[in-house]
């Protein structure tokens, strides 16, 4: 009952929880190396799609590096844009789900409840960031990859929608540790797999409610913008503009 009340308040007052998990993507630092993509796969038990499925456009990536070319040959530049679920405050994917598989947690996360999902895929259509990925078949991992599944993360069956969770399992662990020690989560306690693996520190994660956190500083440093901001989805991911062209 307590939790339900919390959820109701979550609507009226967006941040019912003391935490507000946000991410900052510094485009000036991103080299497009895709280490984050790989780390995400390993951490989150994302199925291995293989060459054939990838060619069909079915490779599942919770985070992807979009590559846009600018200029005319030979004077071209590759621009990289890491895109993951933006954990929008007003997420278009949430209300369209007929079975509440997609909903908003009081901490501002956009949650996907795998075992409620029946695969109508409306959320996928309605996500302007194409962050949502669908399991077209049951998952499989080539040996020996099947030996390295993360026990903290559900393996999703075929017919289920999935997407970036901000590594919710790590957020849980971080919060539980902090709770045990009777303190707030400190900046840097929690690092999602992509953030951990980024060699240039282009990805920064933290609690935006903590004014001292790096996320809170960076998102207000004047370079910040949101992806497709005009849609009013209020994403939790802030991108930082490139410094030089």
């Amino acid at each position: 009952m307590n939790q339900e009340n919390q959820a109701v308040e979550g609507y009226s007052k967006k941040a019912a929880s003391p935490y507000k998990w946000e991410m900052v993507v510094d485009l000036d630092r991103c080299t497009g190396c895709e280490a984050c993509v790989l780390a995400c796969h390993a951490e989150n038990n994302i199925r291995i799609s293989g060459e054939e499925e990838a060619a069909q456009g079915r490779a599942i990536n919770w985070i992807r590096i979009e590559r846009y070319w600018e200029g005319e040959y030979p004077d071209v530049k590759a621009k990289f844009l890491p895109v993951m679920c933006q954990h929008c405050d007003d997420a278009p994917c949430e209300p369209v789900c007929p079975v509440y598989a997609s909903y908003h947690t009081p901490e501002g996360l956009n949650a996907q409840v795998y075992n409620r999902c029946i695969g109508v895929r409306y959320c996928g259509n309605n996500c302007p960031y194409v962050a949502r990925q669908f399991n077209w078949f049951d998952p499989h991992w080539d040996e020996p990859l099947a030996e390295q599944l993360n026990p903290d993360v559900t393996v999703r069956s075929g017919g289920v929608m999935e997407k970036c969770t901000f590594c919710v399992q790590r957020i849980r662990t971080g919060k539980e540790t902090a709770e045990k020690e009777g303190r707030r989560v400190k900046d840097g306690d929690i690092t999602p797999a992509c953030v951990q693996s980024c060699p240039t520190s282009a990805l920064i994660f933290g609690d935006a409610n903590d004014p001292e956190s790096r996320v809170a500083h960076l998102k207000n440093n004047g370079r910040g913008f949101h992806l497709l901001e005009s849609l009013g989805t209020h994403p939790s991911v802030t991108y930082l503009r490139r410094l030089s062209e």
Binding site: G57, R58, G124, Q133, W136, F137, G158, G159
Partner: peptide
């Protein structure tokens, strides 16, 4: 076998 028997793929 899975809904992947269709040609659907994201988006």
């Amino acid at each position: 076998t899975g809904i992947g028997q269709t040609n659907l793929h994201h988006p």
